[in-house]
């Protein structure tokens, strides 16, 4: 038994090493002066220790403002995705109308249209209706991007909710809307929180739309803001500041994953994966 445990620990330990060693460098170099990143041979352990990257980055870019932009965009888009997605999923699972599978399948197919190639047409449209540099310019495309998977997971989840519960609700005189608000939503909280986290992380990390649809420097999101930090000369590239900023914007997501990983897994279990 001891032997078996040892093998498991060894296997998982190696994997954890592969997963963690890039993150180790991130953390290490965020506390080193920027020159440390250009040491040859590279430094594998701390030498100098400084907070200057963490303080300096706030002078280089308005990181707090970017974080606010990201929070507004990612939170609103997640909320809209969940609201619209769960409504559509409920409609689809109640209706059993002709073309129901067509609706779900076309939704999934639309979600497969490559984002990188949608940039120009959406940009042109937003520029025509003066929506560039508006939070909606990201919230709307993100919502659309999140809807296919969200609707799909929610629809599968709803169909697994026992029918008796809904019959009982109907006998109790609950309307179809009341059933949605008072029964379906509370029952599907695990699945909802799963897709909420999946969507939020995707929206928070999105790059190319944020780069293109928010040309105003005050409206940048954190991912774009970090990618645009630059020094005056090549070898003054403020690597330390970039990773300090990168770590700061990743930490909220890491905490989310840490707190919610069991939930993510159990939510998916009842949803799409089970089919």
């Amino acid at each position: 038994m001891m032997n078996r445990n040892f093998k498991i620990y060894l296997g998982v330990g190696l994997m954890a090493l592969y997963c963690l060693f890039p993150i180790y460098f991130l953390v290490l170099y965020s506390f080193e002066p920027s020159e440390a990143a250009y040491h040859s041979p590279p430094v594998f352990y701390p030498i100098a220790f400084t907070f200057s990257n963490y303080t300096g980055v706030f002078k280089s870019i308005p990181l707090a403002r970017y974080a606010l932009n990201s929070i507004i965009v990612a939170t609103s888009a997640t909320f809209l995705t969940l609201l619209f997605g769960s409504m559509a999923a409920y409609g689809v699972s109640v209706l059993k109308f002709r073309g129901r599978d067509l609706f779900l399948n076309s939704l999934i197919l639309l979600g497969f249209f490559p984002a990188a190639t949608m940039i120009f047409p959406i940009y042109k449209m937003f520029s025509d209706i003066n929506l560039l540099n508006n939070y909606l310019a990201l919230i709307l495309p993100y919502t659309v991007g999140g809807l296919p998977l969200t609707t799909w997971v929610m629809a599968t989840y709803f169909e697994n909710i026992p029918k008796d519960l809904l019959d009982a609700a109907s006998v109790d005189g609950l309307s179809i809307g009341g059933t949605y608000a008072k029964i379906m939503i509370p029952l599907s909280l695990p699945a909802l929180s799963t897709v909420a986290i999946l969507d939020f992380i995707a929206f928070w990390n999105e790059f190319i739309y944020a780069l293109t649809f928010m040309p105003d420097s005050n409206m940048r999101t954190v991912t774009v803001g970090i990618s645009l930090i630059s020094g005056r000369f090549t070898y003054q590239y403020p690597w330390g500041q970039i990773i300090a900023a990168a770590l700061m914007v990743t930490i909220p997501l890491v905490i989310m994953v840490f707190v919610a990983q069991e939930k993510i897994i159990s939510g998916l279990t009842a949803g799409a994966v089970k089919g």
Partner: peptide
């Protein structure tokens, strides 16, 4: 361990790119 192994997924793609480029 589960959390540690799931961690890279939370790292934004552009940050991921920057780390590996380095």
């Amino acid at each position: 361990l589960k959390t540690l192994i799931i961690l890279p997924w939370a790292v934004p793609t552009i940050v991921n790119g920057a780390i590996w480029k380095w």
